[in-house]
Design a protein around this nucleic acid. Structure first.
Lengths: 207, 207
DNA sequence: TAGCGTTCTGACCAATTGGTCAAAAGACCA
DNA sequence: TGGTCTTTTGACCAATTGGTCAGAACGCTA
């Protein structure tokens, strides 16, 4: 295949590339970009390093592809919040989805956290682009709900930050959470959901 | 100085070691342990690499010393929560102190976050030791307040997690926050404090 | 089954990185 | 001023790391 045009990828190429993405997600999410090595990824994928580099141009290329797919997954729970729905139901649902994402996709959460923590050098303008736009968009909805007196008035952007923070915490700071609680894997997310629910919808002060 | 016993460190030693800690905090918090290099730290401190290694045994040793000092600073705001005080005042104060820590010591927050994110390999047993003990301790206090009907009943440990999450978010995810808000440095922490206050003490639902 | 494109490998490379060492340069006090 | 201890440096090293390359092995189809 000497011509510059890309030919349709073979079945093996699709499989192996997926295998590599999976392995890379493991390694990158656990060690960050700099901390991860091609050897680790290759081993996790059960391939030799040169073989790995047959499927991906470079370490950066693997990471970039993971990043690409990440942001969408990341923002979908928020996208699904329906402007025409009932505020209580919609917010409850959004928090629920975010918490489930932390439970079911902790590696993705950590990959994202690693990237942001280090200044988002590779996620770059995605943040001030699509992410900002979506938050802006949903803030309008929240403000409407507030104006209608259906939820308490507060800064909608910071409200979204608060939801992100409390839910992602359970994926990103998992070690700490487990150290405090002493594992008990099943109860953890149930109790977290209950606490967040009470805190957000009732508040701390008895009425 | 050939004898094994440590002699009292000179003035220069104290100064230079502090200089190095400061530089290392910059570099480690921005890139994580693996991502940071001795050359970067040396340059940030204005020293040559061998000179740096004259003051610290190894890269690990520098990081370890930062870690040592970190946990105490980290837990102090929670320690200060007074069991005999007014619940509302105490919780408000704790959230306030935590938010101020995020504003005034973002590097320390990120250093901590980096460590936890990657499985806390070097902070190790500090989490299931002193940290867990303190949370356990303050949970008792919170449970008492709940039993007395002075704050709404919920899981005290998860409540503490929620406070950690929403406050540290502003240090650890700063890039994201700025991308969404468009900097405006002054207002940021003020608005954050107001939103958390409303959310935690009033909740989302109008009464 | 022969041929050809795809997949895979071992050997290798240059750059980076944590760390060492002998010796030079400074600082301080008798 | 000389001598001794502390501080600093340039040169160097071994290990690791991202990446290359020529060719071997494989697998599909004519």
């Amino acid at each position: 295949m000497a011509d510059g045009a890309q030919r349709k990828p073979t079945r093996i190429q699709m499989q192996k590339r997926e295998l590599i993405r999976e392995a890379a997600l493991d390694v990158f999410s656990a060690h960050g970009f700099r901390g991860a090595t091609l050897d680790q990824i290759a081993e996790a994928a059960g391939l030799s390093k040169p073989n790995l580099l047959y499927y991906f141009e470079s370490k950066e290329a693997i990471h970039a592809e993971l990043m690409d797919r990440l942001l969408d997954t990341w923002l979908n729970p928020l996208r699904e919040m329906d402007p025409d729905g009932d505020p209580l139901t919609e917010l409850r649902g959004y928090i629920q989805r975010k918490l489930e994402a932390s439970r079911d996709y902790p590696r993705e959460s950590r990959l994202f956290a690693n990237e942001i923590l280090q200044g988002a050098p590779r996620l770059g303008s995605e943040l001030s682009g699509p992410l900002r736009a979506l938050v802006e968009d949903k803030s309008v909805v929240l403000r409407q709900w507030m104006a209608q007196g259906r939820i308490v008035r507060m800064d909608p952007q910071h409200l979204i930050f608060a939801i992100w923070a409390v839910t992602q915490h359970y994926a990103d700071f998992d070690v700490q959470v487990q150290a405090v609680l002493g594992s008990n894997d099943e109860a953890r997310f149930h109790d977290a959901a209950a606490t967040i629910e009470t805190l957000f919808f009732k508040g701390l002060l008895p009425r």
